[in-house]
């Protein structure tokens, strides 16, 4: 599903910063992978490149069989909309839109009609137990509810991949466990999932843990999440 070959990325600021120094990574369809690393290790940059939010300098990136390189803004937008669902640490819901409207927004950009859009969005909200909260604005929701809305938003376009950047970073341990359970359930339906985190407990719930250090993959750890005790892992 995701195939990265020798990806290089340098930020040119006052001092050029070579963030990714040749990343090689394969993520198969239906896998659940976490990327770990200290801050500055390049994990967010990697996620941005995988999410086609940022471009890379050198190497090759194939997404679902398509070569992703030097895309125009329009092509990138289309790819994102079609293949990728994003989940952010701070949820990034649009504050003046209701839960339902937030979930329906990606469909709006796909050109789906209003009725169908809202029906589909409502279906996803219902799936995460938020049907009664559909008409609420984000500031009327709890952190866990907000993250569930954003998961619904990420899923509503039926993407191939979910990219989650510290999805539990702003949540307490109980809701973190809930959100992780949801992500695992989603993964169980066959959607590839890549989670960036610096919490070992979260990473332990994924099948593959990629350790990044100084712009290189240090090691890839195989893991069996089913052996893990949820409440123990997430504190």
């Amino acid at each position: 599903m995701i195939k990265l070959e020798n990806i290089h990325k340098t930020y040119f600021g006052a001092q050029p910063l070579h963030v990714l120094k040749g990343i090689n990574l394969n993520v198969e369809e239906g896998e659940m992978v976490s990327i770990m690393g200290a801050s500055g290790s390049g994990k967010s940059t990697l996620l941005n490149i995988v999410g086609i939010l940022d471009n890379y300098d050198d190497g090759d990136y194939h997404l679902a069989g398509h070569m992703v390189k030097d895309l125009s803004e329009n092509q990138a937008a289309e790819f994102r909309n079609k293949y990728i669902g994003f989940i952010f640490q701070s949820f990034n819901l649009i504050p003046f839109k209701t839960a339902l409207e937030n979930v329906a927004l990606p469909l709006f950009y796909q050109g789906v009609g209003r009725k169908k859009r809202n029906a589909l969005a409502m279906e996803y909200l219902d799936r995460f137990g938020l049907k009664d909260w559909a008409d609420h604005y984000p500031n009327e929701l709890s952190g866990g509810q907000k993250q569930r809305v954003s998961i619904a938003r990420a899923l509503v376009t039926s993407p191939k991949i979910i990219l989650a950047d510290e999805p539990t970073g702003a949540l307490d341990s109980k809701t973190s466990a809930e959100v992780m359970q949801i992500l695992r359930d989603v993964n169980a339906t066959g959607i590839t999932m890549v989670i960036v985190t610096h919490e070992r407990g979260i990473a332990n719930l994924t099948r593959k843990i990629v350790h990044l250090k100084d712009g290189l993959i240090e090691s890839i750890e195989e893991n069996d999440p089913d052996k893990m005790d949820f409440t123990k892992e997430i504190k």
Binding site: G51, L53, E73, N74, A77, E78, R80, N81, K82, F86, N92, L93, I94, P95, L105, P106, Y109, Q110, R153, T157
Partner: peptide, 15 residues
Amino acid sequence: REIGVRRALGAKPAL
């Protein structure tokens, strides 16, 4: 942030 999110969700520049 709002516009960035819209972009991430697939809004094209023309839109």
